[in-house]
Design a protein around this nucleic acid. Sequence first.
DNA 1: AACAAGACCTGCATGC
DNA 2: TGCATGCAGGTCTTGT
Length: 285
Amino acid sequence: MPELPEVETVRLGLAPVLEGRRILRVEARRGDLRVPFPERFAERLEGRRVQRLTRRAKYLLAGFDDGGEMLLMHLGMSGRMVVDGAGGIGGWRAPVAHDHVVIETDAGTRITFNDARRFGLMTLIAPGDVPAHPLLRGLGPEPLGDGFTAPALEAALAGRSASIKAALLDQRIVAGLGNIYACESLFRAGLSPRRRAGTVRGARARRLVAAIREVLAEAIAAGGSSLRDHVRPSGELGYFQHRFAVYGREGAGCPGCRCDPARGGGVRRIVQAGRSTFYCPVRQR
DNA sequence: AACAAGACCTGCATGC
DNA sequence: TGCATGCAGGTCTTGT
């Protein structure tokens, strides 16, 4: 499901439910996700009060007011967080397939992590280890942060012969883009996904940085994209998918030019690094 | 070092 | 209907 805007949407949905609340009970309903749960995972969380829920790239990180180890989470491809409460007529929602972790708070709410494909993970990490943790240390700048500038992007891409599309999916270059927003950002910047990454310099780099920031900010404002199964913790759908210019629109006319699908124009789908890329060959160079 | 391909896992849509 | 195939929002590992 999730790229940066979806993860940020999940964070915004979970923060009011978790921050300031004490975790009463944690249930890990299986031994592992993408990685095994740490020893005594539940016990190491129970009784502690969440201070802040933050995001780094596509990771969520819960910090506690005791300053102790933090909960690090990744939603993988199909992970979602579902919030419910005991207050309703039916009480707790009954567990369904792929409900892997249930967290109960002292506010009477429950957060369930559901992940069919199990590419997601939950683990514990000491606050001091955050920058050097193997899962986090290689991550590039936050695309919406001050560190993501055209000169910085240009430097990260310098000399790279891989396609710019593949480079944008490399979390060391910039952290948080996935397949959808890489495609959408390149469209908005007018850059061909097949262009060698090292040739994105100067005005092109400036356009790409601006496009990435705009696309991500607009997607967050729209509550992310709801394809297939992604919903917000509240159950609401995001709606940015209605604004896709190219993603999933093979054969459709591109919104930026007059290329005619009936005459072989329009949005094209190719495969790069094993992933679908959607783009307009006329508008993107 | 950088890159491409394969692996991980399940569900769904499509076509025969 | 059943079965095979290909595809899906990610990232880690392997091999060149």
